[in-house]
Amino acid sequence: MYEDRETESIWVTTPEDLPTSTNTRGEALAALKVVQDAPKDAPLRIICSSRRLITDLTVRLSRWEDKGWIGIADAQLLRTLVNHLRQRCAPTILSTPESPQEQQRAQRATDLAAEQLRTGHPNQVPMATNPSFNLSGAKMSSLTQSTAYRGIRLAKRPQNRRGTERRIKDVLKHLVDAGTPNTSEAAIWRSLRNKDLHKKTTDFLWKSLHGTHRIGDFWDNIPGYEDRGRCAICNVLETMEHILVNCKAKGRAEVWTLTKALWKRKKQPWKQPKMEDILASGMGLYPTRGGSKRREHLSRLWRIIIPEVAYLIWKLRCERVIAHAEDDDWQHASRAIT
C-alpha cells in the first residue's frame, strides 16, 4: 500500500510473485485499511494493481449478496470491506493505473509491499463492522437447493476426526519429503473431485482418508468378531496400508507388477507407491527424474491408474475375505487377476 499525497490517491498492491488468491486477499486487506483510515467525508480513489478486486466489488457483489455469500472465498474480509465502503458519504473511485506515471507509482507500491513482506512484521487490520450497513441472509428468489445445502453445512461446525487429521498430516509430510512442499490440506481434498477419477475410486479414497472402512481395529469393539480385524494370510492387523502395500495374499503384488509394466511403457521412472502416494494420487504427482517438471498428460494417467489399481486390490481382498469366507485358503488365480 502506498499513499500518493500529490494526487490524493491510495495505491493498493501486493508482490506479483505471490499466488493469485494471496494477491486478492492482500489487495482487499490494503483497501480495507485505507478505507478505515480515510475520513468518511473525503473523496477517495483506490488504485488497484489488477481488476480482480474491482470486479469483485462491482460486477460480482450483487450476485454474492443475493446468495448470502455462501461458498465465496474470503467472504468475511470482502463483506467487511463492503461494510466500510457503504459507511462513506463521499465518492470512492476504484481504478487501475491509467498513465505511465501511475504505472511507475504502482510499481513503486509493489516494491514497497515486497520489501515489507520480506523485512517487516504484519499489522492486524480490525474486522469490526457496523451492523446497520450489513446485508444478512440470502434472497429466496436467488436461493437454490444446492446453495442452501452448502449454507447449512457451513453453519454447522464439523467435528475434527483425529484419525483423519493424522492421515492428512502423514500425507503432507510425505509430500514435503518427496520434494513437493507448500501443498495444502484443501488441495488434497479437492484432488478427490478431479474429473479424471471415477466416482467409485473417489469414494474409496475419501473413505480411506477418513478411515471408515470396516477393517482392522474397527472390529475390536464388537465382541465375538475381533478376529476379523486381522489378516488371515499375514496374521497382522489388517489396515488399508497393509492391504494395498504389504499384504502377501495373491493379487496385490501381481497388480502392482502389471501397473509398473504399464507405467514403464511411458518411459518414466517407477517407484512403488506408498500409502501416502495412493491417498494423494488425485493430484497427479508421479515420480520424476531429478525433480524435472511434470507433464499434464502423464499426471492425468497417474490420476487414472493409481486410484483404479488401489480400488482393484481392495475389491480382490473383499472377494477373497467376504465372498469366499467359507472356503479355506481360497485365493485368486494369476490368470483371473491379470
Rank of each mutant, 00 (worst) to 15 (best):
P131K: 03
G137A: 02
Y286C: 04
N235K: 14
S142T: 08
I306N: 06
I168M: 15
I215P: 01
R320K: 14
R79H: 00
G211H: 10
F218N: 07
S141W: 03
H84Y: 00
E296A: 08
M275Q: 09
D170W: 11
R60L: 10
K260L: 05
A186D: 14
G284T: 08
S99K: 03
W256T: 01
W256C: 06
Q107L: 12
D227I: 12
K260F: 04
L172M: 11
K266M: 12
R295A: 06
T288Q: 06
I47Y: 02
W314T: 02
Q124T: 15
L285F: 14
D329S: 07
A178E: 14
R25S: 12
S49D: 14
R167S: 10
T96A: 09
S334Y: 11
R228M: 12
D17Y: 10
A333Y: 05
L135R: 13
R320L: 11
H332G: 05
W302I: 03
K156D: 06
S184G: 07
H242D: 10
L172Y: 04
K274V: 12
Q104G: 02
V176F: 12
G71Y: 07
S136N: 12
A187P: 05
Y2K: 11
T58H: 04
D217V: 11
E241T: 10
R63Y: 08
E27F: 01
I72W: 01
K315S: 13
T14H: 05
G284M: 07
A90K: 00
W64C: 00
R230M: 11
L135Q: 12
T183F: 09
D41M: 05
E65G: 00
R265G: 04
E27N: 15
W330H: 09
P223C: 01
E241Q: 14
R51K: 13
L77F: 05
I72H: 01
S191T: 07
R153S: 08
I188Q: 07
R166M: 13
D220H: 09
G229K: 09
S208W: 05
D74R: 02
I215V: 15
Q101S: 11
A261R: 12
N134V: 14
I46Y: 02
T24F: 11
G216E: 02
R63C: 01
D111K: 12
T80A: 15
E326S: 15
V309R: 10
P307A: 09
K266E: 11
E98G: 10
D277H: 13
R320Y: 07
T7Y: 03
I337Y: 03
R52C: 02
P43F: 06
V321Y: 08
N235G: 00
L205G: 07
A28P: 10
V245T: 15
S292C: 03
N194F: 09
G290I: 01
E319G: 04
G216D: 04
L77T: 02
N246M: 05
K40P: 00
D329F: 10
E276N: 11
G291W: 09
S21N: 09
Q145F: 13
P223Q: 11
L85N: 01
R317A: 08
S99C: 06
H297R: 13
N235V: 03
G26V: 01
T288Y: 02
P43R: 03
L172F: 04
P273W: 09
